[in-house]
């Protein structure tokens, strides 16, 4: 195959169903830490300019360290994990596998739904920090 053609072939990543028992990893930048190095409620937010959801990585394709390394400054990030089934129990939240071909991130997944005060507090109650 011509190398130019080979370089233009994009991976064929289909969106998959994420099981309830799997974890989602989420990078939290230091801008969203409190004085004790824990996430603040504002960390749980949507990205309207990107996918419109809250970006996470599915454990099937990424480790927590791989998630952390995707930040511009890995050292300025912690990684937390969220159990998919528990996230789905939060009002109006849905978990969708949205592989990001452009950024070579097959693990990318979104948590869609408005991040109200209640929703942000529920996320605060269920997250677990991943020691790295």
């Amino acid at each position: 195959m011509d190398t130019d053609v080979a370089n233009e072939v994009e991976p064929d990543w289909e969106a998959e169903e994420i099981p309830d028992e799997d974890f989602l990893f989420m990078r939290v930048h230091q801008d969203y830490w409190d004085d004790e190095g824990e996430p603040i409620p504002k960390a749980f937010r949507n990205h309207p300019k990107k996918t419109g959801g809250m970006s996470t990585d599915w454990q099937k394709y990424f480790t927590p360290e791989e998630t952390r390394q995707r930040g511009r400054d890995a050292a300025a990030n912690i990684v937390i994990q969220l159990l998919t089934g528990t996230v789905r129990k939060i009002p109006d939240q849905s978990v969708v596998h949205t592989p990001d071909v452009e950024n070579n991130n097959r693990a990318h997944s979104d948590v869609f739904g408005e991040k109200t005060t209640e929703v942000r507090e529920r996320f605060m109650q269920i997250y677990q920090k991943v020691p790295l």
């Binding site: 409190d34 603040i40 409620p41 504002k42 991040k115 005060t117 942000r120 507090e121 605060m124 109650q125």
Partner: peptide, 22 residues
């Protein structure tokens, strides 16, 4: 804990071992 919230708002979170309120 008093922290920056969304859209210029401010969050106040009270917490114990068993409960929390935002």
């Amino acid at each position: 804990k008093i922290t920056p919230g969304p859209d210029g708002s401010i969050d106040v979170r009270w917490k114990t071992l068993e409960r929390s309120v935002l």
